[in-house]
Amino acid sequence: MTKILYIANRDFKSYFTGLVAYVAAGLFMMLMSWMFFNVFVYFANNQYQMMAQGNHQSFSLNEYVFAPHFSNVNVILLIMIPALTMRLFAEERKNRTLDLLMTSPLTAGQIVAGKFIAGLGIVWTIIGTLALYPIVTSFFGHFDKGPILTTFLGLGLLTSVYVAIGIFASSLTESAIIAFIVAFVIEMFFWVIGWAGASMESAMGQTVFNYLSIVGHYADFTKGIIDTSGVIYYVSMAFFFCFLSQRVLESARWR
């Protein structure tokens, strides 16, 4: 266990010795703020119009601000996470430092776990900045805190799948760019699989495709629903891709 943390610690810190973490976090916050601003202005305009018409029923901040805002996050994560994870193994292969890990008394599982924790660490650090929006909004308006918390739980689970996919893609190659593309394509596949569900004729097919869709489950979380099938889906997907990476790493010995 301690060895896993040693690896995680080194990889996590190396995000900060270069520019990677700063660039990713900076761009992410810029985009998110811009999106939040737009969603909020849209909400405020609607509210103003309603009041001008003499309707004093107010819109829910949860429904009209936070739910769309946090859905937008997903799109950005789809690109940001592969960019953050692409180097985890590819770089080690390219610089031959993987030789060090592979000849140290470590199991392939420990190496993957260390990388997974490091990747998750940096991603969670960056999405942690999202907490600013509800915190700041809470000074001015009233909204339900529950769905915000479930959204963060959902984000945590969702990102763990993206990180696992990113690590798997990175374990396949020594080129970070290829790792990025592969991770992005796998993520997209599990994204668009939900669309296939919509066009399915059999109810059975619809259920299967909807279940496999990475976005569908997340939508539940942003609405304040903790669906156990969603939790199981995310945990098992993350585990599955970590397991694949472990197999890839192990197989390097036989090539």
Binding site: R10, S14, R96, T97, L98, D99
Partner: peptide, 8 residues
């Protein structure tokens, strides 16, 4: 090739 991390 010595397995070195150039950022350490």
């Amino acid at each position: 090739t010595p397995p070195l991390y150039s950022d350490m």
